[in-house]
Write a protein that binds this DNA or RNA. Structure first.
Length: 276
DNA sequence: CAAAATGTTGCTGA
DNA sequence: ATCAGCAACATTTT
């Protein structure tokens, strides 16, 4: 499900539904997803704590409490479902937060890849899992020059693989990387070290733009993804992702699908010329 | 019906 | 040090 735009959509929804509420109890049905401490101290720490607000760093959700953050990653299929009152849990519900007003928040994750951990507020950005992330893509100090500098570290990798690294370009995932490279007219197999500064500049602009537009559309609704309230609409604007065989919106050539770094990769063989 | 593929990331072994 | 590959898991698609 979630790349930055989907996580931001979830964040906004949670900000409306659970921000300001105080936790009365927490139930964990899948202990393995709680990282860094045992389940008992985890649920103990959260009891009687108030969610001040819900923040986001890249694809991570941060529930801000008075002294610490609950850092949550949805990985492939994690979802949050808020309910106005107590409700029977679904087969794939792994954590239930109950609030003092009687409402609940269920964390649901079919594939059980998602994680949760508590971190001190003061050091959350200096320790894993947030320590290595690049700044937010919408931060004005995230420039093409910064991206170019980051790409030096991955100069031998295909640009597609490099862009999926959250310490290189925060927030991109498989869908939006393909869209970014299409918009920038760069072939996904191009070695990062072979890119000109102009290429990198186009990738920078395209990446920030595609994320921005996707956020405005509420993210993409693909496969299993459903936002807690409301559906994303960006999938209607996808130029290449999932469009295998369909005509390129720019030139009409059939979109091709290949594998890059083990990930399904969509591109226009005419607009995105091979340049290894 | 078996194999491959599915949005992510971190670990392992070459 | 890098990096490709795999592992975590369940469901859908080929």
């Amino acid at each position: 499900m979630p790349e930055l735009p989907e996580v931001e959509t979830v964040r906004r929804s949670l900000e409306r539904t659970v921000s300001g509420k105080t936790i009365s109890s927490v139930k964990v049905f899948h202990p393995k997803m709680i990282r860094g401490m045992e389940v008992a101290p985890f649920v103990d720490a959260l009891k009687q704590e108030r969610i001040e607000r819900v923040e986001r760093r890249g694809k991570f959700l941060l529930f801000a409490f008075e002294q610490f953050y609950l850092v949550s990653h949805l990985r492939m299929e994690g979802k949050y479902f808020p309910y106005p009152q107590a409700i029977e849990k679904d087969k794939h519900t792994h954590v239930i937060f109950r609030f003092t007003d009687g409402s609940e928040l269920h964390y649901n994750d079919v594939r059980k890849f998602g994680t949760m951990e508590l971190r001190e507020k003061a050091t959350v950005m200096q320790v894993p899992p947030l320590a290595q992330l690049e700044r937010e893509p919408f931060d004005p100090t995230f420039t093409a020059e910064v991206l170019a500098e980051n790409l030096i570290r991955k100069k031998r990798s295909p640009i597609k693989t490099a862009l999926l690294d959250q310490s290189i370009f925060l927030g991109l995932g498989n869908i939006y990387v393909d869209e970014t490279l299409f918009a920038a007219r760069v072939h996904p197999l191009t070695k990062a070290g072979a890119l000109t500064l102009d290429d990198i500049s186009r990738i920078h602009v395209a990446g920030v733009d595609v994320l921005q537009k996707a956020v405005e559309s509420g993210g993409s609704t693909i496969r299993s993804y459903v936002s807690p309230s409301g559906q994303g609409e960006f999938q209607l604007q996808l130029a290449v992702y999932g469009q295998t065989g369909a005509p390129c919106p720019r030139c009409g050539t059939a979109i091709e699908k290949i594998k890059v770094g083990g990930r399904g990769t969509h591109f226009c063989p005419n607009c995105q010329q091979v340049a290894l």
